[in-house]
């Protein structure tokens, strides 16, 4: 309990963002919409990392924040590659409907 805030407040905020991201991934057929959902999920994970880092005593231990920075870095790489693939699909199929990218199925 710090200034009226507990760890559970932040975990529940992370849970809410995570669930909205999962809903976004499940319901979109637009590939870019799915990527947006993934970004929300990664942000939820980062909220948890930072919250545990904050409430876990702090001191000279920055592991949680370092992990969050690695997650942000991988999210950037993932977004770049994902959007490049989506643009390549769009150039070939003129759509980004993930159900339409099935030219490999027999």
């Amino acid at each position: 309990m710090v200034n009226g805030l507990t760890l559970n407040d932040f975990l529940i905020l992370g849970l809410a963002v995570f669930l909205l991201g999962v809903y976004c991934v499940l319901t979109r057929r637009n590939a870019i919409g799915i990527l947006m959902g993934i970004e929300l999920i990664l942000n939820a994970a980062n909220i948890n990392y930072i919250a545990f880092s904050f409430f876990g005593g702090g001191g000279a231990n920055y592991d949680g924040q370092v992990f969050a920075i690695f997650v942000i870095m991988l999210a950037a790489a993932e977004a770049v590659i994902g959007l490049a693939i989506i643009l390549a699909i769009y150039q070939n199929l003129r759509t980004i409907d993930v159900g339409a990218a099935e030219t490999l199925s027999g």
């Binding site: 870019i32 980062n46 930072i50 904050f54 999210a75 950037a76 643009l87």
Partner: peptide, 30 residues
């Protein structure tokens, strides 16, 4: 709020300045 000032700046630079702009580009290109 959670005393992670550097991570907050990285979040703003990378997410808002990079990923979000890229996403909006992709939305408008496709």
């Amino acid at each position: 709020l959670l005393a992670a000032d550097f991570v907050a700046m990285v979040q703003i630079f990378v997410y808002i300045g990079g990923i979000l702009v890229l996403t909006i580009f992709a939305v408008m290109l496709t």
